[in-house]
Write a protein that binds this DNA or RNA. Sequence first.
DNA 1: TAAACCATGTAACCCGTTACATGATTAT
DNA 2: ATAATCATGTAACGGGTTACATGGTTTA
Lengths: 181, 181
Amino acid sequence: MAQKNILKYIILGLLNHKELAGYDLKKLFEGEVGDFWSSNHSQIYPELRRMEEKGLITSHSETVGTKLEKKYYRITPAGQEILSAWMHEPLSSLVPSRDEFTMKLYLIDDPRDPLLAQLFREEIARHQKKYDYLRSRWEALFRTQEDRLKHFGHSLILEQAIERERQRLQWLVDTKRNMIQ
Amino acid sequence: MAQKNILKYIILGLLNHKELAGYDLKKLFEGEVGDFWSSNHSQIYPELRRMEEKGLITSHSETVGTKLEKKYYRITPAGQEILSAWMHEPLSSLVPSRDEFTMKLYLIDDPRDPLLAQLFREEIARHQKKYDYLRSRWEALFRTQEDRLKHFGHSLILEQAIERERQRLQWLVDTKRNMIQ
DNA sequence: TAAACCATGTAACCCGTTACATGATTAT
DNA sequence: ATAATCATGTAACGGGTTACATGGTTTA
């Protein structure tokens, strides 16, 4: 085994709410799910086929217009069992973060290296942008308490991501200021 | 191309300080570098061979004891240029975090689901452990100002990681408390 | 003398990305 | 008309993990 196939469980989890076609899943990964997980259609379609072979999902086609076929997938009891088992399974161990900023910073051993300030500027810009984006997502999705309750998990991870970006930005700005003078 | 080969630059950056054998790199990835990046020897050795073929590094063998050979690698001017170019290159875009906790949380839409509290307990335990570990690493490595200056980048990313864990723990504890009652 | 560690390699496999490919439908 | 989007697939490739494999050296 190389890595464990988490995509399978994500798909099961999404299908557990309602039936979806591969294209719908792709759109979800480009939209609201995409803030936390992404996947390309070239990975989704073969995965769906394998999951159907294993009996975790079933499919039925519907025609859109006159010729175009849309293949909807629905979770089976077997699939729900697999999903539930995964949800109850302990979390696997934390993996190192592995971002480029961290690694570049690690390799700079001289506080006077001019690269240092540039690196911080870049990282600050990246995270500021992400922070703003996530906040706008929250505004769009969870302004009312009703929306927050209806998609409880989603609102939680979005809030957590916003907090994470806020904290990271603050650390970056503080550390940069302390370094420069 | 699938993913970009960052390991190459990490290795170049490590060899830029002093010559190292594949086994030394493996040990670094199990030790202080491992907090932020990890790699197996099965990936390191072939990578070193490819890098030597491209002229980024050179090797010379030394015998340990009477028979055991240790193959030391040294960065070449060509390798230093590649490393410097990467260091000056803009950071590539942020990728979604993709951890299991986040995804499981996303799939829980009911605030009363008993899985919720269990998930938080687990995640808190994981991050508490990581937090304690990172703090002990900092204590071991950077108690004196001299040590901090000597390995400036390393001390910075360790501090950042500690802050990150601290903030995440706080969010987890606060959110769990608000949820439960 | 046996266990732990040093030291280096290869092979199999899976995941995820990019690119190739085709055709229908809708919006401008 | 034509561009954008819908909809579904396959192919090639690189990175990373696990397992297989071998032998030397040090330590308890």
